[in-house]
Amino acid sequence: MDEEIQGSLKDAHWTKAIPRARDWRQSGWLVWVMVPLLVLGGAWSGLSAVAAGSVRSLLFPVVFSVGFAGLVWMLRSATLPAAGVGLLVCLISALVVVRVPIGSGVFARPALSALITLFVLTFAATRFGRRRKEARGLAEARSGRRASQVVANLGVAALCAAMGRYSVGWYGGCLAALAEATADTVSSEVGQALGGPTWLITKLRRVQAGRDGGVSLAGSLSGVVGAGLVVLVGSRGFASWTDAGVVFAAACAGLVFDSVLGATVEEWGWVGNDLVNFLSTLFAAGLAWLWL
């Protein structure tokens, strides 16, 4: 009986259009499908790195990834399972080395550099105006992101990174997915913190800040800048700035696609936020892969 009462109270605080049970099922399936693929991607990347060099080539990626995941967990930016998923993503990204290395460590790994930039920008944006967002019920949980959120935002980028050593298109897809995920989080967090006029992207009518599919000038500009910084940092993996421009355009298109999904299928209660984020990064990565 007590469990039923607690469940009812939780549902009373649920503000999404999608039923809570359906949202959990979608997020759960996303984790169950993507995590094994990430494990395979990490194993494949590791074996490829060893085949191209030696076992010692795994030392930096493994040590750095474990340390980075531990830091993220200690900062309470992610739960322990989410930090474990982040470790896989970081490991795969760290194993992608540009053909003509610039320096060593992080500096020879543009995908890893882009991932770190994403973390710094989203960490700052999440904490920007936190008290105001908490007062309005829009702040992220203090326990940090869940595993499904990490998979939704970074899973596509990691799988593209695992294939990144084979063509510029795959690396471009990785970077576009990272840039789109950054733009989405930064635009949402900054827009909610600053408030101001917010419009529903499909109907161009005023809505409350934090509404699915709602966009604001401050949030959108912040997101575009965030995407640009990620692409700039990761551009060492390209032979020309034209490729970087294509990736940046794909990331911005993914940000728009995310808002459109939020205003339609998410608002209709068909899909949850995790699936929307996953599809948006997939869309951005697909555009970059096709153009490159």
Rank of each mutant, 00 (worst) to 15 (best):
V96N: 02
A181Q: 07
V168Q: 04
A139T: 10
R130V: 14
A157W: 02
L138W: 03
G172L: 13
S167E: 10
K133H: 14
G137W: 12
A183Q: 05
G155K: 09
P101G: 08
L154W: 14
S187L: 00
S167F: 03
G214Q: 05
L121Y: 05
G164Q: 02
A193G: 02
R142P: 07
C160P: 00
A179V: 04
S188W: 03
L121Q: 04
V97W: 14
L118A: 03
G105N: 13
A176E: 03
P197V: 08
F123S: 11
L95W: 10
A147G: 13
L112V: 05
V89K: 02
E140L: 06
C174A: 12
G155R: 09
A209L: 06
V207W: 02
C90Q: 10
E140W: 03
A157C: 09
V106C: 01
A114I: 08
K203F: 08
L88R: 03
P101Y: 10
V150D: 09
L91T: 12
A161T: 15
G144K: 06
G195N: 08
C174E: 08
V106S: 03
V97S: 08
V89T: 10
P110S: 11
V190T: 06
R211I: 00
Q208C: 07
T126Y: 01
A152R: 05
F119H: 07
R99W: 07
L95I: 12
G219K: 01
F128D: 00
V106M: 01
S143M: 10
G172N: 13
D212I: 07
M163W: 13
L159N: 09
R165H: 14
S167K: 05
W199H: 13
D212V: 11
A158T: 04
L204A: 13
K203T: 15
F128G: 00
G173E: 01
A162T: 03
R205S: 11
G195V: 08
I116T: 04
N153V: 02
M163Y: 12
A157H: 01
A181W: 02
Y166E: 13
G213L: 03
S167L: 05
R131Y: 14
N153I: 00
E134H: 05
L200Q: 11
S148H: 05
L121A: 10
F119S: 04
V151S: 15
K203C: 11
T117C: 14
L217K: 11
A94T: 02
A108E: 15
P110F: 11
G173H: 05
A218E: 04
E140C: 06
S216F: 07
T185W: 13
W170M: 15
A161W: 10
P101E: 04
G173N: 05
V97K: 14
E180I: 01
A94R: 00
I102Q: 14
K133A: 09
R127V: 01
V150E: 11
T182R: 01
A141S: 15
E180F: 02
A218M: 07
A124Y: 00
S104H: 12
S93G: 11
V168N: 00
D184L: 15
V106E: 00
T202R: 06
T182G: 00
G214T: 02
L91G: 08
T117K: 07
A147Y: 14
T126I: 03
V106Y: 03
L115K: 00
R205N: 12
